[in-house]
């Protein structure tokens, strides 16, 4: 009704917006992200720093998609749909950036990603077997002081999922991002290990970690 009177439609006045995803139009809820719309449409968009239990973070850039009218590819996890939006999840420029980002991530690891890890599965899916970028890799540093949790810092890609799930789902605030640039990593407490931090051993960090940098110890089985 407002529209008929020439006034702009405010978000709270409608329940849904229409977006075009890879050529097909669909209706999504107001405030839904492109990633949510894609899931609804059954289109898979790769993600690395995303976990549906957490607020979208937009850090890894693996969910970049082409959006008509946008100057550059946009992250699907943090970009909200608006009415009439035209999204291309197969956008060539976005795909190129994504593969390069993944190569850069892999280039920091001392070896191949942990077989079967989310990172490994993703690299295979996107056809990024090896990195073109040679250079420094993370040094091996293991913390095995906790009976259930293992931290292998060299596998950490600083996606922040563990820190965020510890804050946003558990509320233990036991993990912190440490270091800068290449030396960025995560630590339990003041690098004192899980058992000597505010960690409550819920295992959420291991459950969300996409690389196995933090994982459940099976060696004590």
């Amino acid at each position: 009704m407002s529209a008929e009177r020439g006034e702009p439609i405010r978000a709270e006045q409608c329940d849904s917006v229409r977006v075009c995803l890879d050529g097909g139009w669909l209706e999504v809820g107001v405030g839904e992200t492109i990633l949510q719309a894609a899931e609804r449409a059954g289109r898979e968009i790769p993600t690395l720093c995303f976990d549906r239990r957490l607020a979208p973070f937009g850090a890894c850039r693996l969910c970049l998609v082409g959006v008509q009218g946008a100057g550059a590819p946009l992250p699907a996890c943090t970009t909200r749909c608006h009415d009439g939006m035209v999204v291309d999840t197969t956008d060539e420029r976005a795909r190129r950036v994504v593969r390069t980002v993944l190569e850069l991530v892999l280039s920091e690891l001392p070896g191949d990603p942990l077989p079967g890890s989310e990172l490994d599965v993703l690299a295979r899916r996107l056809g990024v077997a090896r990195s073109r970028f040679a250079g420094r890799t993370h040094e091996r540093r293991h913390d095995e002081r906790h009976p259930y949790l293992l931290l292998e810092s060299e596998l950490c890609i600083s996606c922040g999922r563990c820190v965020r799930i510890c804050d946003e789902l558990q509320g233990a605030f036991a993990l912190t991002a440490t270091g800068r640039g290449f030396d960025a990593s995560i630590a339990a407490g003041l690098d004192s290990g899980f058992a000597n931090s505010s960690c409550v051993s819920c295992g959420a960090c291991a459950h969300t970690c996409p690389t196995g940098a933090i994982r459940e110890r099976l060696d004590t089985l």
């Binding site: 077989p115 079967g116 890890s117 999922r161 196995g212 994982r215 459940e216």
Partner: peptide
């Protein structure tokens, strides 16, 4: 991914 938060140790075993 449909199920984020795959515990890598398990996926390792899965692989």
């Amino acid at each position: 991914m449909e199920h984020p938060g795959a515990d890598a140790a398990l996926l390792e075993a899965a692989a």
